[in-house]
Write a protein that binds this DNA or RNA. Sequence first.
DNA 1: ATTCTTATTGAAAATGATTTTCATTAAGGA
DNA 2: TCCTTAATGAAAATCATTTTCAATAAGAAT
Lengths: 132, 132
Amino acid sequence: MVTRQTRQKEFVLDNLKQRFDHPTALQIFNDAQKQGVKIGEVSIYRILNNLVKEGSACKIVTKDNVAHFDFTREDHIHLVCNSCNRIFDRYIGDNEKLADLIKDFHIAKQDIVLYGICNECAKSENYKKSNF
Amino acid sequence: MVTRQTRQKEFVLDNLKQRFDHPTALQIFNDAQKQGVKIGEVSIYRILNNLVKEGSACKIVTKDNVAHFDFTREDHIHLVCNSCNRIFDRYIGDNEKLADLIKDFHIAKQDIVLYGICNECAKSENYKKSNF
DNA sequence: ATTCTTATTGAAAATGATTTTCATTAAGGA
DNA sequence: TCCTTAATGAAAATCATTTTCAATAAGAAT
């Protein structure tokens, strides 16, 4: 299957690259409309999910069940506020301590969540079928 | 407002205390039915959300947009598999390094998410109105 | 440049977990 | 036993996201 370059894909990727506010699909859709770019909302969802699959973007789900997207740049982690649903970036090295991550943010250990692929799924390679 | 003790609340809390598999509302509902305990699904959602609000439970949302619940015990963090959607507990101290969290799990830094309350919301105390 | 294949799009409908509504039930104090 | 109102639950609503599928268009082939 040969992938094709389209206006829609280009717009979504560019929009995501330019901004640092972890937009939702709807926010990107609104940007497109403001700029007179014709894209259906559904296509934005599909394009974003594809970017996540290929590793060019990551998806962060806030507690209001809304997916936010971020272009994959330098390694950083995400601090998510459960009240205002904003997402903050924190750049931190491998050798830094857990306590450093929690500083300046009110986080219980139970609310530290690391999304990845468990060893079992990684071995079976089933995860390739996954949406993430 | 005086809170009242009910069979329904008791069942949900007990069920959550007994299990370590981070059940969904539906799983708890199924347990109730198997055991002949009459509770509506809606009530389970409501009771679980109340437990989260009061700090007795925490909610972990997997990438398939399903909420899982965990009775608040010792401090531990959650590793979530994006393929099988299982949730793993990891007990870890403040002084441990970030690298230790990632060991044995295939995680990009972008997929490390810490849910909490940002300083701004904590100051304004708006977060008390929040569901979390 | 034109044709052709099929990847991609997008509108409408479907999905599915969760929340809201509101009449009914029942906890537990009076 | 009565009374207030917290809590429940069935049905309906919500809402982000996904699926469907006919129409469109990228870009290779001719």
